[in-house]
Amino acid sequence: MAASIKELEETIVEEFSYYDDWMGKYEFIIELGKSLPLINEKYKTDKNLIRGCQSRVWLYAQIEGGKIIFTADSDAIITKGIIGLLIRVLSHQTPDDIINTDLSFIDQIGLKEHLSPTRSNGLVSMVKQMKLYALALKTKML
């Protein structure tokens, strides 16, 4: 049984609790952003592109056994690091769980500003798109 969204969020919050200053936290995100292979290059197409004013995000979704597998990427490392966290939490989950999550862990680890619409880094649109995929799949399964 794979971990639930809630369990994964708690793990991430715990991981971030080791860093008490912004620099350590951002160094961790940068490492995440650098190390994660997030998307198959062939899916980095215009069709899957979410154009933020600041950074660009590619999002691809596929379905396996009633669960959604997300892969994504960004041209900015910090955005990519946060995508890594979002994917870790939301990928391999059921549509209902994805639709109902509020992603409050982002606030708890002090990165809420990156999910602010004013940042225009593509992340807000990405989360919206993830939920839309989940909704579409759920409708299809009914």
Binding site: W22, M23, Q54, S55, A76, I77, I78
Partner: peptide, 22 residues
């Protein structure tokens, strides 16, 4: 190769307001 957004986020943490993007 550092993306302007990444640079802008870190500079902001240091109290420095620059513009990044297009």
């Amino acid at each position: 190769n550092i993306h302007p957004y990444d640079a802008g986020v870190i500079l902001d943490k240091m109290g420095i307001a620059v513009r990044t993007g297009h």
